[in-house]
Write a protein that binds this DNA or RNA. Structure first.
Lengths: 162, 162
DNA sequence: ATCTTTGCGGAGAATAATTCTTAGCTGTGT
DNA sequence: ACACAGCTAAGAATTATTCTCCGCAAAGAT
């Protein structure tokens, strides 16, 4: 993805994934490291199923149930987020827990991270000024629907599923 | 809900629901009117299951499959929306198709509609000005997490978001 | 090093959510 | 009345998610 302000994961330096897990109070097993890595590596925001496919490439035997359980524990530990999506029926996960926004491509179902401090400030200021009387906002996430204009509008939609 | 800018459905005037359906090119059957009405009446943003329960009160025999199919056709006709939610696994529907935003109460899991043309303009202008190079946005929905201050829990935390 | 405790992973069954298929009914136009 | 179209009902089929149970392997204590 080449959106200028798109959020950059701090480089998939697989080296510190175990640390991240440890910090979160989770054992850094091979499986977990691979699952966490999948979230960083897979395009968009993968489903449990997609993570499963990906991890299977390395650990033949891993089961889908384990993926679900592990992703749940990541979410509980604050290591991962669930992304809200109105489309599709499967849950999507996001390794990035910093505050950021999402672009939803209506063509490809892709979910693209979008990080923009200016936008954050704009929204924060707006609510600070307006002040909701009955509600204390505490985090904001903007969902932008639209379509991607990849110069090569190619349906490069390769889904290595299955 | 008493948020001043909270969106108000144009009063559940059941009388014009058939019209709405007709306008959308759908036959105004008893079942459909009831389903549409349920979306307006049920608190929060109901699941297909909840709509089913509610409609059953009047039409004993209606099946869950019909609810799903009907809601799908409503969505296709632009009469209803699917609400994106990171929590839970069931789809949530919203009878209100005007552009609006959502406040998610982290205490009660409640989803409150929030409609604010100024905010809409602010966001639209922001993106018009910034211009995403690879993406053509076409609708925006802000998800605000926080908690409701129902007079009771107020004094506690007074920290402005970040 | 061995024992123990505990969390983790694997398998598959169980449950929940959603879609599909088929058939029958109802209203409309002729 | 007849044929057509769209709708509903019912239930099977699929897909998504959770749960349970068991053996294993790592971390701590002796």
């Amino acid at each position: 993805m080449s959106l200028p302000s798109a959020h950059h994961h701090p480089a998939p330096t697989a080296s510190h994934l175990p640390q991240q897990l440890a910090q979160a109070g989770l054992r850094a097993t091979r499986q977990r490291v691979l699952i966490l890595e999948s979230l960083l590596v897979l395009p968009g925001h993968p489903t449990a199923e997609q993570v499963h496919q990906h991890v299977r490439a390395q650990v033949e035997s891993i089961s889908l149930g384990t993926i679900y359980k592990t992703l749940d524990s990541f979410v509980a530990a604050g290591l991962t987020r669930r992304v809200a999506s109105a489309e599709g029926s499967a849950r999507r996960y996001d390794a990035d827990c910093t505050e950021h926004h999402h672009l939803f491509c209506t063509d490809t179902q892709e979910i693209i991270d979008y990080c923009d401090p200016q936008l954050d400030a704009l929204i924060r200021d707006f609510f600070a000024a307006r002040g909701l009387p009955d509600f204390q906002p505490h985090s904001f996430s903007l969902h932008v629907k639209g379509n991607r204009l990849t110069g090569a509008a190619t349906a490069a939609s390769e889904d290595s599923a299955t």
